[in-house]
């Protein structure tokens, strides 16, 4: 199978669905003729024109609220935030309107909307261009949250988002954008709420999110040389979250680490840990462990930036400690 990048895979999903569905339009800053700061819409303006590739003023609250009205009346907006930190200006529209209107209208109004943007720490982007924020959206009823870690998942999860009725956060870690992987040329959908077991093992389970997935997989290959077989799970979507796959794995391994670059308090690791404690307590042979980025705004200088993310040594130590418990 041919190999393409994460960005190319997501763009292919968007291109295919825009060709099939004339109600899809994209809004954002520089997503028109320019093709997006991260090439998310490269080449689409020439095909679909300004009504469907709509460059906007820098008014995140305004165009997100506008897209809500469009989604309620037959269109299918894709909001391209470029950097997901910019979503914060639109939180009122998202949390009070977009997540609630299907419910408030007792299911008679649909809210088909994709909210995409780059997340994550890297490249000395500093604290207004390094956020992730997904736990905020997982907390709120009414959002789907997709967190693909590879090109295959990016295309399939985005295709599903572009064909469903719900508001979907589609979050792209900036350090994953140029990673290559095998991707079918035809359109396909991946279900939400179905984790992928990327590596089978018996010594411990590691649930890894986004950029932590390739980091953890590489470390586990090293640990295997020492005879440690680690099972690695990528949830792929956080809302809904596939706890069944995680619980099944913990039943086998008895040990669980959740590796997530973003903050620990009230985070995804805390949620997974609570659910495993509630539903799989008897399967545990050791306390559940979490590995998170530092609970701090993201600093600029490379030495400081590297200090707030879990590095290879920290991940390796966390896994070895868990197995030794």
């Amino acid at each position: 199978m041919r190999e393409i990048t994460f960005t190319e895979a997501a763009r292919e999903a968007l291109t295919e669905q825009m060709a099939l569905d004339p109600s899809i339009f994209v809004v954002g800053e520089g997503i028109g003729e320019r093709g997006g700061n991260f090439n998310t819409t490269l080449g689409l303006y020439e095909k679909y024109g300004p009504m469907r590739l709509r460059d906007t003023p820098i008014v995140e609250r305004g165009f997100v609220g506008m897209c809500a009205g469009a989604a309620m009346t037959g269109a299918r907006p894709v909001v391209d935030f470029m950097i997901v930190d910019f979503i914060l200006d639109s939180m009122g529209e998202l949390l009070n309107q977009i997540s609630k209107i299907q419910y408030m209208s007792s299911g008679r109004i649909k809210m088909p909307m994709v909210l995409r943007g780059c997340i994550g720490i890297g490249g000395a982007a500093a604290t207004h261009h390094s956020g992730s924020y997904y736990p905020l959206f997982v907390h709120i009823p009414g959002f789907r949250v997709a967190l693909p870690s590879n090109p295959y998942d990016a295309k399939g999860l985005l295709t599903t988002a572009l064909t469903g009725d719900n508001p979907v956060l589609f979050l792209e870690h900036k350090l994953l954008l140029n990673r290559r992987g095998s991707v079918p040329e035809e359109a396909y959908k991946l279900p939400y709420g179905q984790a992928a077991v990327l590596r089978e093992g018996s010594a411990a389970t590691v649930v890894a999110l986004a950029v932590m997935v390739p980091k953890v997989l590489q470390i586990c290959d090293e640990l295997a040389k020492d005879g440690l077989d680690i099972e690695v799970i990528d949830p792929r979507t956080l809302a809904p979250l596939d706890t069944t796959t995680i619980l099944e794995s913990v039943r086998k391994t008895g040990r669980l680490l959740i590796a997530d670059e973003t903050f620990g308090p009230c985070g995804i690791g805390a949620e997974i840990s609570a659910q495993v404690m509630e539903q799989g307590f008897d399967d545990l042979d050791a306390p559940i462990a979490r590995l998170n980025g530092a609970h701090t705004p993201t600093p600029y200088s490379p030495t400081l930036e590297n200090a707030v993310i879990p590095d290879q040594a920290a991940i390796t130590k966390a896994i070895r400690d868990l197995v030794a418990e």
Binding site: P22, S23, F25, M51, R52, R61, G62, V64, G65, M66, C67, A68, G69, A70, A71, M72, T73, G74, A75, P77, G92, E93, N96, Q97, I101, M104, S105, I109
Partner: peptide
């Protein structure tokens, strides 16, 4: 399409419906 407990969103959503009608 809804009455709202928050002041302001009706303006944005109204504009969005206009966008939808023009697009379609």
């Amino acid at each position: 399409m809804g009455t709202s407990g928050i002041v302001g969103p009706s303006i944005l959503q109204g504009a969005g419906a206009g966008y939808s009608f023009k697009l379609l």
